[in-house]
Structures are given as structure tokens and as C-alpha cells.
């Protein structure tokens, strides 16, 4: 790992995104909280859903989802907005992507702390034991986010349609993920449609820890999930390395 390069690219990325805005990073932190407010009004006051402490239930899903979706969408542009350097000098381009993921992860961490405080404040039986389940949930979240970001960023270099397609897919994916509903609410008939969504498990674990506060027992699911994620990430990494030499020509 070239930490120097990573740090410098992180600074560049941060600057490209936030320097000219007054509140900078705050906008990104506010994004899930604003969505939370809107969804609250719609689901509690208009649709009148029957879920106790719905804001906390929703926020568990939103925090994870915002990290996943904004990283996937922002990654589409991460090479494109640095074309000046990619066209002139050869270096490990994926460090640009890493800096993008790290920046989004930072925002996720801040939101995660807000979630933790929110969870402790709104209920009392918070089990320390369950805290350890957060680690595999975050590992899964990082693995799937990195995999998807590798795909969207690499493809975007070669086809400028990919950012648009990504936004549409992410939009559909949002509704296919149990964020404002619970997986048990899905009717048996169409449950197969939702079964293989990789984003479900980390959200469910985090919701179990912060919302249900029950002890989780599906250890084998977690291990299988992580193994599949690592295989997928390896495949994507190989694909990226095949395409990497052609970046300067097609960007």
C-alpha cells in the first residue's frame, strides 16, 4: 500500500467535492437525516405504518444504504474527474477509487455514531454482546460497496452511459432492499425476488443490534455472505486489472 499516494488523493478528492461549498462535509452527513425526516412524515402521518419507533427502524437502514448507494454513484465519476492526471502519468489508478470509498466511509462513520446515540437514547435494553455483530455487518457492507464501486467506476471509463444506468439501478435497488419495511412483510409469493439481495443482510444485522436488540444467531449466513463477497471482489479486481492499461486511451 502506498499510504502517501492514498493520503494525497484523498485530499484531492475532498477538495474537489467540498472546498467551494460553505458547509462542505455537513451536506453529506445531513443527506440520510433529511431523507429520514421526509419518510417519517410520509409513513407515519400519511400511510400510517404500524411499526414501533419507526424513525429508528428507518434510520438503521438509511445509514447503511446511503453509504452503499452514494459510493456506487460517486465512483462512476471518480476516474472521469481526474482524467488530466490519468492521461499523463501511469500510476495505480484504483487508489483514486479507494480515496472515494474512504471519504464515503468517513461520512458513514459519523452517521453511524449518530445512529448509536439515537438508539441508546430511545430505548434502554442495549446489549453489549450484540455490538460485536456490527463488525461483520460493516465488513460485508464495505465488501459489497467496494465490489459495486469497482464495477461502476471501471465501466464508466469505457461507456458514458454507465453513470445514468447506475443511478437507475440504485434507485430500483433501494426499493428492493428492506429499508422502510421489514423482510417479514414481503408476501411469500414474491419473496424469491428479494432473497439474493446482498444489501439485506448487513442492514438486518444492524437493525437487530440497534432496533430489535435481540441476540442474533445466523452465524453461518454471515460467513457464507463474506465468502461470496470476497470471491466477487476478486473477480472484479481481475477484471479491473485487465482493463486498467486502456484507461488513458478511453477516458
Amino acid at each position: 500500500m502506498k499510504y502517501d499516494l492514498l493520503l494525497n488523493l484523498f485530499r484531492l478528492n475532498y477538495r474537489l467535492k467540498y472546498t467551494s461549498s460553505k458547509f462542505g462535509l455537513l451536506w453529506s452527513i445531513l443527506s440520510p437525516i433529511i431523507t429520514l425526516g421526509i419518510f417519517n412524515i410520509i409513513f407515519i402521518h400519511i400511510l400510517k405504518v404500524n411499526i414501533t419507533n419507526f424513525p429508528l427502524f428507518l434510520f438503521c437502514g438509511l445509514v447503511c444504504w446511503t453509504f452503499f448507494s452514494s459510493t456506487a454513484v460517486n465512483s462512476c465519476y471518480c476516474y472521469l474527474k481526474n482524467f488530466e492526471i490519468i492521461q499523463k502519468i501511469r500510476f495505480p489508478y484504483h487508489y483514486i477509487l479507494f480515496s472515494e470509498i474512504i471519504l464515503n466511509f468517513m461520512i458513514f462513520t459519523i452517521n453511524f455514531i449518530i445512529l448509536t446515540i439515537f438508539s441508546i437514547l430511545t430505548s434502554n435494553n442495549f446489549s453489549i454482546y450484540n455490538i460485536f455483530y456490527i463488525i461483520p455487518a460493516i465488513i460485508i457492507l464495505i465488501l459489497i460497496t467496494t465490489t459495486i464501486s469497482f464495477i461502476t467506476s471501471t465501466l464508466s471509463v469505457f461507456s458514458k452511459d454507465i453513470p445514468h444506468i447506475t443511478e437507475i439501478i440504485i434507485n430500483i435497488w433501494f426499493y428492493a432492499t428492506p429499508i422502510f419495511y421489514s423482510p417479514t412483510m414481503i408476501p411469500e409469493k414474491i419473496r424469491f425476488l428479494f432473497k439474493y439481495n446482498p444489501a439485506t443482510l448487513p442492514i438486518e444485522i444492524i437493525r437487530k443490534v440497534f432496533y430489535d436488540k435481540t441476540i442474533i444467531i445466523y452465524n453461518s449466513d454471515i460467513i457464507i455472505h463474506i465468502i461470496i463477497d470476497i470471491i466477487a471482489l476478486t473477480a472484479v479486481w481481475i477484471y479491473y486489472n485487465k482493463k486498467r492499461p486502456y484507461f488513458p486511451e478511453f477516458i
Partner: peptide
Amino acid sequence: GIGFHPELTGRENIIL
């Protein structure tokens, strides 16, 4: 050009 980024200053570019 040697691959400098337009949004960074000369100093920052040299470090990068």
C-alpha cells in the same frame, strides 16, 4: 503538462 490536476496548486500538485 506532466499530469498536474487543475484544481490543485503548484505546491500540492508537486506533492501529489
